[in-house]
Amino acid sequence: MTEQNNDGIKLTPEQAKARRARNIALGLCIAGLCVLFFAVTIVRLGGAVLQRPM
């Protein structure tokens, strides 16, 4: 690696705060989608979908 690359990208406090907020929002959206898709699977296919022969 060159010395130039070692310096990397330095985020300003504002950029770091905005990135953290975006990451949290994305995480919450993905978690919410998981809950919704789980709920709709149970509703559409019934609870028995979890009891499958091994």
Partner: peptide, 10 residues
Amino acid sequence: RISSASPRDY
């Protein structure tokens, strides 16, 4: 460019 956009902007 490094984004400064907040979730509110989206």
